[in-house]
Design a protein around this nucleic acid. Structure first.
Lengths: 138, 138
DNA sequence: GTAGCAAGTGCAAATCTTTCGCAATTAGCA
DNA sequence: TGCTAATTGCGAAAGATTTGCACTTGCTAC
């Protein structure tokens, strides 16, 4: 229950709904707010979608969850602990692959050295064509 | 008017509206559908927003324009000719910087070699903190 | 040059996602 | 146990994008 500490520090409360949202984000991975709500409703049907949105935002401010953009519109959320990989999104089939952050280390360093830009590689997906689809195109 | 060729090939027509949308995308850069519509309306006030959306989609299918994701929700469109740089989006101030594609060459090659993933670095922005904001944080 | 057909347009309404206001509820401190 | 401010639920609002449909109009064939 480390979250209790993070929350209280900022005058925030640990409500059942908030716990459920956090738990759902931790269980699911890359979950949209809608999916989080759905998950939470399995055990707590009455929860409101607004509440999910608000809690995702709150939990993000506190640093317990983060969001990234894997596709078009919506953000997807994941627990802060697990941002250990970057996302490879295939534009052809929609698959989301993963790769360790280290493969981008050089790229990140270059941007830092030459542009003073501190990159968070996990926030936006890396877009392209996955091996399978690239194969199929030939 | 190279576009005439691209369009006809697929049984599509070159309508005034379609030309205007394409012209607007070429003049603007990183334009949202809304901005494209606004631009087109300067010379052709009656154009409908749906038409802009539909034409952006059509032109993208044909390969004359492309879209990328620079921020939260919306896509922004640019002419297919000009994807010569990647986008550095600052999460703190929202500024969109640019960097030549070459800085990512190594990264792209690694992904290709190790994962068979063909990366389109221009499609999604690179997220992080710009030099100015990184400075301010200290 | 003209007719015919399918593609495209305008318009309004429908969706979908996310946000907001507000009254009722409740967690956490004294 | 009581208070106060944070939080929730709910409905409505806002914004973005899509869709159905009747009307219009490129483009091709004659």
């Amino acid at each position: 229950m480390a979250e209790q500490h993070e929350l209280r520090e900022k005058g925030l409360r640990l409500t059942p709904q908030r716990e459920l949202v956090l738990a759902a984000v931790r269980e699911l991975d890359h979950a949209t707010p809608e999916e989080v709500a759905e998950r939470v409703r399995l055990t707590h049907p009455g929860i409101n979608l607004s509440t999910v949105y608000r809690n995702l935002e709150t939990l993000e401010n506190v640093g317990l969850v983060q969001h990234s953009h894997l596709g078009h519109g919506g953000a997807t959320y994941h627990a802060a602990e697990v941002l250990t990989h970057l996302h490879l999104v295939c534009g052809a089939c929609g698959a989301v692959g993963g790769a360790p952050i280290e493969v981008a280390a050089n790229f990140v360093n270059t941007l830092a050295d030459d542009y003073g830009f501190k990159t968070d590689v996990t926030h936006f997906a890396v877009y392209g064509t996955c091996a399978t689809c690239a194969q199929a195109e030939l």
